[in-house]
Design a protein around this nucleic acid. Structure first.
Length: 506
RNA sequence: GGUCGGUUCGUAUAACGGUUAGUACUCAAGAUUUUCAUUCUUGCAACAGGAGUUCGAUUCUCCUACCGACUACCA
């Protein structure tokens, strides 16, 4: 039995979106549950699409979520470049591993599983558009490779010469004709594909001396002794190629098992969740906010006030469930209960309302002290200096009404500063001279407020709301008793007296 | 177009041949509350369609429809 080793292998082409975070999370949960290793590897073989900062973003995002790598990333959050006991397969960045792939590509050519192709990208592009013009599709495969410029069709000397003198050739996989590849997926079960429908994928490019995803991925997974590959469904179509690659290298015995996760879909309409959706529909698609090169900012769950635990919990339930009715899970519980065979096969439409609900649940479960600590900076920003114990008390009263810590201030700023203006409509409704007289008397009285009003047989609603208006500036909100218990009776009387000025003005 | 995958209330999902098809979010109504919110109760709402297999199909098979992914010298 091999030690479980799984990896998350993002491409630093931009910020990681929530689908990617979920993939990382499932890998992490799986590794932890099996007592194995969770490895992070950066697949930056496409130099053209490289985005500065994306790698740091990815690691920081995973860190925020509590998804820590066992291998590939050091304590400082940097991708490991030099091998050590803990990180034996360094470097974990494919661009820095470029030296190792060429010989594997050549091994395949020697074995007859691949060949050198000399067609330029432009030639292929024009063949493609030409075919398209005729309503056909150009595929580089067993049908067309005999007519193209490659080591299968050119004389040996010519091949040698081109290999030496040109730099834009590639190594292509020689996809067998009419072979049925039978595959087993941990989530989807048995899948079969006929190789005649597949094409000769580029494995390695002379131009930048870099492999493409397929080669790099298989070679690295093999070298890093990966036991399970848990990745997005978009990879399912290339699974036959990957199976064949393992076969071609003679690594079938140790080939990892595969699990293809369902996609995350847009909340409304069709299609998979994309970067733009979030800002269009008012919810984040990224764990952390992101500013692109054009200076546009995208929302992030962290900056929008979500707790990482809530975000992770919500994400975990998108496409997986334990089969029980439990919905709130700590990371530890997720590790214990996660299982690939309970991952659903169909794509999940993400529901922003549910994300908020999760946050609300987590917010309520937190201690007043913890929430107060998070609230303090907000208060400071509002120019409020408040005693920690007082903030704890306030938080205890208002947290039931909040989804985010950032809601706290809006819910009851009047627990820190006296209202300077009053809601017009409530002023009209409750701020009558008659109400005010009763309210002022009641608040000044020595007796318990509610009892006093009841004893006087005054209209409870009118008097109470007039008091609320004076204390909070609005006719709706917290319980009067709660407000007074925070600001104190003296301040309450002061605020009621201040209300009088506004009544006169009106 | 081709290949592959998918399809249970609006959404996420439960059910692994026999249930009044459950739960959560959303929404609506009612109760509680001095107001709003909370809380509680109730309600609305689904097996894509058609053939089989079976004593019996949401569940198994096939077909159709629809949705999605892939179809790059991108991952």
């Amino acid at each position: 039995m091999r030690r479980t080793r799984v990896r998350f292998a993002p491409s630093p082409t931009g910020p990681l979106h929530m689908g990617g975070v979920r993939t990382a999370l499932y890998n992490f949960l799986y590794a932890r549950q099996k007592g194995g290793d969770f490895i992070i590897r950066i697949e930056d073989t496409d130099s053209a699409r490289f985005v500065p900062g994306a790698e740091k973003y990815i690691i920081e995002a995973l860190n925020w979520c509590g998804i820590k790598a066992d291998e590939g990333v050091d304590e400082n959050g940097n991708i490991v470049e030099i091998p050590s006991e803990k990180h034996p397969h360094a470097p974990y960045r494919q661009s820095q591993r470029r030296g190792i792939y060429r010989k594997y590509a050549e091994e395949l050519v020697e074995k007859g599983w691949a060949y050198y192709a000399f067609d330029s990208a432009e030639e292929l592009a024009s063949m493609r558009s030409e075919a398209e013009g005729k309503g056909e599709t150009f595929i580089y495969n067993y049908q067309s490779r005999e007519k193209l410029k490659n080591s299968l069709t050119l004389p040996k000397e010519e091949v040698e010469r081109l290999l030496e003198s040109t730099t834009d050739w590639t190594v292509r996989f020689k996809m067998p004709q009419d072979r049925v590849v039978a595959m087993d997926d941990l989530i989807r079960g048995h899948v079969e594909v006929n190789t005649s429908t597949l094409d000769d994928k580029v494995l390695w490019k002379r131009a930048d001396e870099l492999p493409t995803y397929h080669l790099a991925n298989i070679v690295d997974d093999h070298l890093m002794e990966i036991t399970e590959v848990i990745r997005g469904e978009e990879w399912l179509p290339s699974l036959p190629l990957h199976y064949l690659l393992y076969e071609a290298f003679g690594w079938s015995e140790t080939m990892p098992r595969f699990a293809h996760l369902p996609l995350l879909l847009k909340p409304v309409g069709n299609g998979k969740l994309s970067k733009r959706d979030g800002d269009k529909m008012g919810f984040p698609v990224f764990p952390l906010h992101w500013v692109n090169s054009a200076g546009e900012t995208y929302h992030g769950y962290r900056e929008d006030g979500y707790f990482p635990e809530a975000f992770v919990n919500m994400l975990a339930m998108l496409g997986w469930n334990p089969g029980t009715e439990q919905e709130i899970f700590s990371m530890q519980e997720l590790i214990e209960q996660f299982s690939l065979d309970k991952v659903s096969k169909s794509g999940a439409k993400f529901n922003p309302d549910k994300a908020k609900w999760y946050n609300k649940e987590y917010l309520r479960a937190k201690s007043n002290e913890e929430l107060a600590r998070e609230y303090l900076p907000v208060l400071k920003e509002q120019g409020v200096e408040a005693d920690f114990d007082y903030v704890c008390k306030v938080v205890g009263i208002i947290k039931e009404r909040a989804t985010f810590v950032s809601d706290f201030w809006t819910i009851a700023p009047y627990l820190f500063v006296a209202p300077s203006e009053y809601v017009e409509k409530d002023l009209k409704k409750f701020g009558t001279a008659e109400n005010y007289a009763m309210a002022l008397e009641a608040i000044k009285a020595d007796a318990e407020l509610e009892e006093y009003i009841r004893a006087k047989e005054w209209p409870m609603g009118k008097v109470m709301n007039c008091i609320r208006l004076g204390l909070s500036g609005s006719g709706s909100g917290l319980a009067i008793a709660d407000i007074i218990s925070c600001i104190g009776k003296e301040e309450a009387i002061k605020r009621m007296e201040k209300l009088a000025d506004h009544l006169l003005c009106a």
